Amino acid sequence: MAEQADTRLSRVDGAVVGAVVDLFVYTVVLNLFVEYLPGVISETFTLSLLTAVLLKVVLEVVLVAKKRVVGRFRAASTRTGKVVAGVMVWAVAFGSKFLVLEAVDLVFGDRVGLGGFFSVTLLVVTLLLARAAAERLGGPDGMRRSTHRPPAAVGHRARCSRTPRAPSVPRRDEGGVP
């Protein structure tokens, strides 16, 4: 029973850490866009942080919707079903950019602007790539998915990463030269 509670707690801790890492990554990427793309505007750092939170929420909803639609695409057995599901995947991917633009405009008005469709598309792609890179570099999900396993330990030498030592010189009591 305690083991199940520990497992649930570690999953929650991992999810919280993952969300915080995502927010840091989103904030950095968003501020780089603010700095280098004239169409992307945020009046203050606080607004860019809040925009990152909004982007995190919206993109999570979009990813859930996309996952469901892709599941329908894979489950479709007829050609018509595949075409319809493919159009739905495209509609979710295309429409999500407008959802992001409208959500930011609704919440922040003129104080935050993400430019137009192409700058938002570039922003979203960059956010998702940066998120994947952070996970690979050691984020909570990256560590869980890691395939690296330490070698089976035979003894102390199997666990050590030292280089093998040269044979030792015999001591006096072992018949060596005095």
Rank of each mutant, 00 (worst) to 15 (best):
G115A: 11
S146Q: 02
S119D: 11
R111Q: 15
H148C: 06
V124A: 02
F117T: 06
E3W: 10
R131W: 01
V17Q: 13
L9C: 08
G81N: 08
F73R: 13
R8V: 12
L9S: 13
F117M: 14
E135Y: 05
F94S: 04
F118N: 09
V89E: 05
V125I: 13
G86W: 10
A2R: 13
P38E: 15
M88C: 09
R165M: 11
T147L: 14
E174L: 09
G155H: 04
T163C: 06
S10Y: 08
P178M: 08
P164A: 15
L63D: 15
V177E: 12
L123T: 01
E174V: 04
F117R: 11
G18I: 04
L114W: 03
L114N: 06
A19N: 05
A134D: 02
M143W: 09
A133C: 03
P38Q: 11
V87K: 11
V21I: 14
R11Q: 15
S42F: 02
L106Q: 09
V92R: 01
L47Q: 14
Y26C: 04
T121Q: 07
G113M: 10
A85V: 10
D22R: 15
L127G: 00
V16Y: 07
P151D: 06
V169Q: 13
F73N: 01
F73Q: 10
L50R: 11
E102W: 14
A65R: 13
N31R: 15
V87R: 12
A132G: 07
M143Q: 14
L101N: 02
L123I: 03
A19T: 12
V20D: 09
L37N: 11
V57P: 00
R11V: 08
K67M: 06
V124G: 01
A166T: 12
G116T: 09
R171H: 11
A93G: 04
A134H: 04
P38I: 04
K97L: 15
F94K: 06
F45M: 12
V29P: 03
L129E: 09
D173Q: 12
L49Y: 13
V20A: 14
A133H: 03
E60L: 12
A75G: 09
P38Y: 04
V69S: 03
L50D: 09
A5K: 14
R157S: 13
G14C: 02
F118C: 07
V40Q: 01
V177L: 11
V125H: 04
V21M: 11
V154I: 11
G81K: 10
A132P: 01
Y36N: 09
V107N: 02
L129C: 05
L123G: 02
R79I: 08
T80C: 00
P150Y: 05
F94D: 03
P164V: 14
V61C: 01
A158L: 02
F73A: 09
R72S: 12
R162G: 05
D22Y: 00
A133W: 10
F33G: 05
E35W: 14
H156W: 13
R68N: 14
D22I: 01
